[in-house]
Nucleic acid binder design. Structure first.
Lengths: 355, 355
DNA sequence: GGAGAGGTTGCAAACGATTGCAAGATTCCT
DNA sequence: AGGAATCTTGCAATCGTTTGCAACCTCTCC
């Protein structure tokens, strides 16, 4: 029952293995099957663990696998099982070609997504696309057979294309702005409300002429502006857009320009993101304009830097961690076939020293 | 030759397709072959483009593929061709479990890597691992059959394990510190030299007692400290380590503590990274300690924030973009079988206002 | 002692694309 | 016109794993 149960062919094999040190490479499940003296099917089941193989056989095979450092070929496994265990994450760089993938907000979100997906046992395939160059970016990713589902970080200016893709593809969740009646599942901050909170705070502090620093071609930013404009109109203030793009090498200069040329015309600045706000803060400081006495300033995102500037930045916080968790959760439910609703997260005004 | 050359079976198919609007799903190469009236092999060759199929056949098949939105199943293709077109990127979170994947420096590097890999036609599979929990992290990734090669971002405290893996696995390139005689291919800044540059500058400005803010358990940071210490010893100054970890939620507090408790003992601070330097700068400002008059400060990395603080941060620049390009280049050469050497990039002192 | 019930295992067909080889169709040359 | 040379194309094996089905073995119970 014990030693005698071992297949006769096994002994010589093991002897050979111990003598000829150059251990035979055990690459496939078939190699392992030969070593163990069983069939490939049994090895497969044994490695899967929860199957109907004899306990002793299973343990013997698993030990052998460990000993030889055997790993399943995931490509084959995934082909056969028709699922990949991989979630695709796309960052479309659309509305501003100069924007880099290294955008702090998106990278932070990406980090949390990586954590969450790892936690749930999925791998993450990252792709950065420039939609203008590659019209087909989303379908290509979806249809590649490489991923079970897709997370899109930022709608950029690709709202319509995402809508179209969503019509035929369930397992997709997007970070971005929610619009009435849209068809794709989105997780994101209530940007409009965020804009309102910012404007209310600025106006309550005495501001009447607000500059909005940001690029309203991006739908999220447009919503932030719209919220601020609505409040301003109601309370007798104005909001003017000074277009500012999110490119590491030019943002600072654009902001400096705005402050130089139009600085006198405003008593408050609402920056579309903390990154922009930091540039503005620095430029104001350089010119000796006191914040918040002469100009009030509010940012958006609440990135770690926001708490570290001097004076510390008042800003609108987005719940990045919560958003990442929600995206993954919704995606997994969609993978299971559920038609999930979009989720709009409330922004929060973080009071610090600039407004 | 023209219309008559078309296989007889084709017409009915197309008619059926046009009548029964619910377009037959064209998922596999075989479906497409049936539609086109050719064999699967021919379709495969036609789609690959550069093969030996008749020009007209090729174009007809490609048009059909486009029309039906056909995509190759990458899993199958890659299994057969024994290459994946995917490069794995791992971020080991070892020396400080609280460190997050969202570490700014690593994320910036990751962004550039993504750009470079995309450029070269590779996809990027991202994995975050906690080596303490998963002893096997590197072998598992390498042996998974999911990636053609691996890039490791940061050695953390896993130097030995990476060495072992490198012995049996060529296509791997690591970002990190270079040590005499090491076996794995690394790209990284000359941290020791960076430390020297920093110390030289601080001491030239009059500093004698330098505090090093960082965690010397991380090999890169240890090298930065060692460089500074060497210069200090030569020039009659001292460098003392005040352990500071890179965790978003606790770094600021640790730095504040150091400044509060030991602030009087030093006339200069060398921060192991800009992130830490920014915290230090803020804390010094809060306490009314003038920079650089009372305390000189130098950071490391030259992240975008460094130029935006007030006063702007003097720092040691790492060439992140150049490093990313080099890592990808070396990896591709290793994929081709070449045994590449490590590459050590020179750091550069960026003079701003804090030292 | 034989039938039936469980428990294990092997067999072989998938998964979808690629590719060496050989067959068929054309063209060209003598 | 016959045969070689050149193009195209189809056939079938292959990549490595999973899994339904059937075969086999061992007990148990009547």
């Amino acid at each position: 029952m014990l030693g005698t149960a071992v297949a006769p062919g096994l002994r010589p094999d093991m002897a050979a293995d111990e003598e000829n040190a150059p251990a035979a490479p055990v690459r496939t499940i078939t190699d392992l099957a030969r070593l163990a003296g069983v069939s490939a099917g049994t090895v497969s089941r044994a490695l899967a663990g929860n199957s109907l193989v004899n306990d002793q056989t299973r343990e013997r095979i698993q030990a052998l696998a460990r000993e030889h450092g055997f790993r399943l070929n995931q490509m084959a496994s995934r082909l056969r099982r028709q699922k990949t265990g991989v979630i695709g994450v796309v960052i479309p760089l659309g509305h501003d070609r100069r924007q880099q993938i290294s955008d702090t907000f998106f990278m932070t979100l990406l980090g949390f997504l990586a954590d969450e997906l790892t936690e749930k046992g999925y791998d993450l395939m990252l792709r950065r696309v420039i939609p203008d160059r590659d019209k087909d970016w989303l379908d290509r990713f979806i249809g590649s057979g490489m991923v079970d589902g897709v997370l899109v970080i930022g709608q950029s200016d690709q709202f319509e294309r995402i809508e179209e893709a969503a019509d035929g593809y369930l397992p997709m969740v997007v970070w971005g702005n929610h619009q009435e009646g849209q068809r794709h599942c989105v997780v994101g901050t209530d940007n409009r409300l965020g804009g309102k909170l910012a404007a209310e705070r600025l106006i309550a502090g005495g501001a009447r002429r607000i500059a909005f620093l940001g690029d309203t071609a991006a739908i999220e930013f447009a919503a932030r502006h719209a919220g601020a404009a609505e409040v301003a109109a109601r309370l007798g203030a104005t909001v003017e857009v000074l277009p500012t793009h999110l490119a590491p090498d030019s943002s600072a200069a654009e902001v400096a320009d705005h402050v130089a040329v139009r600085g006198q015309d405003f008593d408050a600045i609402f920056a579309a993101s903390d990154a922009i706000a930091v540039y503005a803060l620095r430029e104001l400081g350089k010119r000796g304009i006191r914040v918040p006495d002469q100009v009030r300033l509010i940012g958006f995102d609440d990135l770690p830097i926001a708490a570290q500037t001097v004076p510390a930045l008042t800003t609108i916080r987005q719940d990045i961690l919560g958003g990442a968790k929600a995206m993954v959760d919704l995606l997994l439910r969609r993978l299971a076939g559920e038609e999930t609703e979009s989720l709009v997260l409330p922004p929060r005004l973080i009071l610090r020293d600039t407004a």
